[in-house]
């Protein structure tokens, strides 16, 4: 972790995101990135990545019909042009669930690696953790979830957070932590080929806002999610 030296030059605004919204973190920016690049090699890589995800879930014993609709929704969402706002919200929930499946599958596939991190959070087994804290909609995204998703999708992410420990002199530092997928060579040698995360999130207690670069400014946008899972009187 390091100070974001040029934070002052970024005008940052953000609006509060709902709990469910913590998850569609790759949606907008990832798609924009792909559409801009229109790179056949990248499209092929996405297809291979989806196939990998399908095999992981099958190997773990998930019935195909429980996840195939979410893979389809994800592909449709990426390949079709932007639908109306209402449809975006409905589709975004399906995409969020797709990412929950990806995360759950990856954690269970590499359970030996993730076990120590999960034991720090709960006494549950890796599998129980996935059933209770990854797969249900509305469950929060912790460090483990982001690391996993970044790895599984091969997408680097930057999370900005405010450090209030230096508040006494009236300033708030903006720090950041980069999540770099493990299979990217530059993540390990940290040198020659610097990874530039194109997804930036702002962490505020309990949720993340998606920050977008727009005309040289970093902006937070709000998406309204249709069905959050709260059953209150």
């Amino acid at each position: 972790m390091q100070n974001l030296e040029d934070a002052d030059t970024h005008k940052m605004t953000s609006t509060q995101a709902s709990q469910v919204e913590d998850w569609p973190i790759f949606k907008d920016d990832d798609i924009e990135h792909i559409m801009e690049s229109q790179d056949q090699a990248e499209v092929d890589q996405i297809k291979a990545n989806l196939e990998q995800c399908r095999m992981t879930l099958q190997d773990l014993g998930y019935a195909e019909f429980t996840f195939e609709d979410f893979i389809t929704s994800y592909v449709e969402f990426r390949l079709t042009t932007r639908p109306h706002q209402v449809e975006i919200n409905a589709a975004a929930c399906l995409v969020v669930m797709f990412f929950r499946f990806v995360t759950s599958g990856e954690i269970q596939k590499r359970s030996e690696f993730f076990e120590p991190f999960i034991q720090g959070l709960t006494s549950a087994s890796t599998q129980q953790f996935c059933k209770s804290a990854v797969e249900p909609m509305g469950e929060e995204s912790y460090h483990v979830h982001i690391t996993t998703l970044s790895d599984a999708r091969g997408v680097p992410i930057r999370v900005l957070y405010l450090d209030r420990s230096s508040c006494d002199n009236g300033t708030v530092n903006v720090n950041h932590h980069d999540f770099l997928p493990v299979d990217r060579p530059s993540a390990n040698n940290g040198g020659a080929e610097a990874v530039n995360p194109f997804i930036t999130l702002l962490y505020l207690t309990g949720h993340y806002d998606i920050l977008h670069w727009l005309g040289g400014m970093l902006l937070g946008l709000k998406l309204n999610m249709p069905f959050t899972c709260s059953f209150q009187e």
Binding site: Y62, T66, F67, P136
Partner: peptide, 10 residues
């Protein structure tokens, strides 16, 4: 059946 439901269930 409530908070912990997930679409992975059947």
């Amino acid at each position: 059946l409530y908070d912990s439901w997930s679409p992975a269930m059947t």
